[in-house]
Amino acid sequence: MDIKAMLKKSGSVIGLVALFVVISCLNSSFIDPSNLKNLLRQVSINALISFGMTFVILTGGIDLSVGSILALSSALMGSFIKGGMDPVFGIVLACLIGAVLGSVNGLVITYGKVAPFIATLATMTIFRGLTLVYTNGNPISNLSDSDAFLEFGQGYVAGLPVPAIMMLIMFFILWFVLHKTPLGRKTYAVGGNEKVSFIAGIKINRIKIFAYTITGFLCGMAGAILTSRLNSAQ
């Protein structure tokens, strides 16, 4: 086995472990189980977004609008729940709103022939502006006392935070899609060489739209977790 190649491939993991060890030595409370659980809860939000971004980057794109998608889907979900919508349905709706917003990015990039950086920079500003106008700059608080809603961001199952469990579930689903399905192989192919992929009969536009849509979906899910955790959309 080529140790140099293995170290290069695992560089980020080694760096994370080294950082974990250093911080643990500097502060022993860092490895306290309650702190680690809290870290898992916090990391789950960024992790979900990064899972989707992985698909986008593999197609050779970038998405700058993920934070704005999270904000807009959270604000809409929060206002609907505040208006009497069932909180569980509100969470599902947040994911669907995120998926729709993500697909808008994909459509602009593929059929509008706009560079991903420019397209998502524009939608980032648009979605953020819509959120500001919709909420009038104020947080939407005290959304629900529903246990099902609050558990989604604050609860535990078998000692693990629910957001961390959702993160792991989505990780394994998307890992399977990326490594074990034709869709995953086509995603790699599009990012590797679009011309060859086109000649091979791959529907490039569909793959790119899927990548941005799944990113939006996961932004909506991350937004729902954050809103549930705070019981507030802001």
Rank of each mutant, 00 (worst) to 15 (best):
18 A>K: 00
23 I>H: 01
74 S>H: 08
175 W>I: 02
168 L>Q: 03
97 I>Q: 06
143 L>G: 03
46 N>D: 11
56 V>L: 06
220 G>D: 02
117 F>E: 02
48 L>Y: 01
213 T>F: 07
7 L>N: 02
201 G>E: 02
159 G>N: 05
89 F>C: 06
200 A>P: 04
234 Q>P: 07
205 N>A: 14
16 L>V: 09
96 L>C: 10
211 A>I: 08
218 L>G: 08
217 F>I: 09
173 I>V: 15
208 K>C: 09
58 L>E: 02
56 V>N: 03
62 I>P: 10
160 L>D: 00
124 M>W: 11
199 I>S: 12
7 L>T: 00
52 G>S: 06
53 M>L: 15
40 L>R: 04
6 M>D: 06
46 N>I: 08
222 A>H: 02
148 A>Q: 06
154 Q>F: 06
160 L>Q: 01
71 A>N: 04
149 F>V: 03
71 A>Y: 08
181 T>I: 12
16 L>H: 01
60 G>K: 07
91 I>K: 05
31 I>C: 07
219 C>H: 00
161 P>H: 00
82 K>M: 05
25 C>R: 00
116 P>Q: 02
88 V>R: 00
27 N>Y: 03
202 I>T: 14
206 R>A: 15
157 V>L: 15
74 S>Y: 01
142 N>A: 13
18 A>F: 03
42 Q>A: 13
186 K>G: 07
190 V>C: 10
101 L>P: 04
82 K>S: 14
88 V>C: 05
179 H>G: 09
84 G>C: 11
141 S>I: 10
230 L>I: 13
229 R>M: 07
73 S>W: 02
12 S>F: 14
1 M>I: 11
127 F>Y: 15
47 A>N: 04
47 A>L: 12
226 L>P: 02
28 S>Q: 08
226 L>W: 12
76 L>Q: 04
96 L>P: 07
9 K>Y: 09
164 A>D: 01
222 A>M: 05
178 L>S: 05
233 A>C: 10
98 G>F: 03
93 L>A: 13
53 M>P: 03
103 S>Y: 00
43 V>Y: 10
142 N>C: 07
54 T>W: 08
3 I>A: 14
142 N>G: 11
233 A>H: 12
115 A>P: 11
134 Y>D: 03
154 Q>D: 02
148 A>L: 13
232 S>C: 12
83 G>C: 04
145 D>K: 12
174 L>W: 04
168 L>K: 10
22 V>Y: 00
135 T>L: 11
76 L>I: 15
205 N>K: 14
105 N>D: 13
